[in-house]
Simulated assay, not measured.
Amino acid sequence: MSAQQPHVSDLLRIHGFTALEPGPRLIVLGGVHGDETCGTAGIERTLAELDGGALQLLRGQLTLVPVANPLARRLMRREGERNLNRLFKPTPAGEAPADYEARITNLLCPLLERHDVLLDLHSFQSAGEAFAMIGPRDNAGTLEPFARAFEEGQLALHMGTPRVVEGWLEIYAAGLAQRAGGRPADEAALAFGWGTNEYMRSRGGYGVTLECGQHEDPAAPEVAHRAIHAALRLLGMVAPDPHAKPPATPSLLRLVSVTDRDDEDDQFVREWATFDPVAKGEPIGVRADGSVLAADRDGFIVFPNAQALPGAEWFYFAVESDRDLRRPALP
């Protein structure tokens, strides 16, 4: 596709709104994966409200990207030529973009850099409730140094989901090491784990990925739409809602492991949904050789994928976190 003339529907559509009063700069992405349409629906509805005057931007800048991966959307599949939410870094100077997604990334990266806050709207394949994903706690480490964890946690709290999940990049790195026989992943391999939020944090901003529900869930577009409004209110970019209630405290989970599907004959013992609880010792799946894969502790299944290809992530495992999003971390 990258060597052909672009189809008109493969062009990136970006909508920008700037208030007369200065304020935060928020960018909202939908359709990073082509078969995830709820974010697009939520953004299009918000666009109509802004254009029609039902919603007024009072301060700051708002950028809305209804379909961040137009090729994948036209094909109505997760990817165009590869996963846009991996290797989300600009192509090095002097090199040609390797594929369509690299060209899109080269457009989106400078756009994200001009903003303070990112809301990235997604959905998932298995059954399950909506949830928000956040990055690391404040740290000065080498994997993902960060200093805005409290602000990011506040944004996650206001998404209105019953759960928030932390720990993505750390577990991605652990998965790479696991596949390499315990050897730490090199920088190039880790870079493939970078998505939109990781890039946003690396540029001094912060971001939340909102998983609005299962792909076909009719409630998912409403989850996306509510989240956009909640983010705008939290940042003081639109008028407050006098009837809004304080957000309920969601449960917080921490990803602790990822398990790959080794063989196409590896099978789950039942149809799992994201956040299904699992007790220590409970069977989760059966390997092709007949060995039973059981939980090594109490926890929760996350992103089970019965159609995963051999060598790809089969499911993630999470446990309850001790993090408190309502309070800044102690120095």
Rank of each mutant, 00 (worst) to 15 (best):
H225E: 10
F150D: 10
V65T: 12
Q61V: 10
E170P: 09
R203S: 14
A306Y: 08
G281L: 05
D262V: 06
D322L: 08
A98M: 04
R114P: 00
F317C: 12
P331D: 13
E222R: 06
P97F: 01
L253W: 09
A127D: 10
H215D: 03
Q56E: 14
A329P: 14
E216F: 13
S9L: 11
C38H: 04
A19L: 02
F303R: 05
L143F: 01
A147L: 06
L112Q: 05
T40N: 07
G195C: 03
G128W: 03
I134G: 00
R287P: 00
V258A: 07
E170L: 15
F150H: 08
R74Y: 01
P221T: 05
A227D: 09
C212V: 02
A279Y: 15
R201I: 08
V278M: 13
R179I: 02
R77V: 08
T40A: 06
A224Q: 09
P136L: 03
H122A: 02
D324M: 04
A48P: 05
L50T: 01
R270L: 06
D263Y: 09
A54T: 04
C212H: 01
V302G: 06
G213C: 00
L62W: 00
E320W: 07
D217T: 12
I104V: 06
A72Y: 01
A54Q: 15
T161V: 14
D217K: 13
G80Y: 15
Q178Y: 14
L210Q: 02
Y316R: 09
D260W: 07
A248V: 12
A177L: 05
A54P: 09
